[in-house]
Amino acid sequence: MKTRSSLWITITGCCGLFLSTMIFFGCKIQSGNTIAAMNDSTKSFTAIVTSAKYADNLTRVEYKGRSVYNQYCRVCHGEDGDGKGFNAYNLKNSFGVEPADFTDSTFMVNHTMENIMNVVAKGGKRMNKSQYMPPWGETLNREEIENVVAYIKVFSRLKALGDLSK
């Protein structure tokens, strides 16, 4: 009689274990399917609104950086980052200074993220470059500088892609 009851206990225990495991993993599989369904419909509102890619295939950080760039940097460094902005002509004529060309990949490779961030924050003079690059450290906060440097890096990437397609 005693053996029979312990057998019963073991059987029920096993069933309980099996069931609870099933229930638990069942829930997991269920939620996994929902994610897959959401990703499938790329055109859905949720997909567009939560997408990590922004206009022109930029990341969120680069996209934010673009508006800072267009506001403060574009006038000299140019809309396409080629160093030929509206004011570049005057700088060359008056002082013989040319704004940096961000599409030049060799130039960009030689400058680390940290290095460019320093030039943006402290200005050209303190980084042994031209004094006509002003310091932005008091105007932009660290986050904005990070964003704008991320965007500056995009130009050489785009150029490289353009060269490849030729």
Partner: peptide, 18 residues
């Protein structure tokens, strides 16, 4: 002169035009 104000402002015959 040191701060490079003339990158954007004209004084005399030199300077930027921002």
């Amino acid at each position: 002169d040191e701060k490079g104000c003339m990158a954007c402002h004209i004084v005399g015959e030199k300077g930027g035009y921002v």
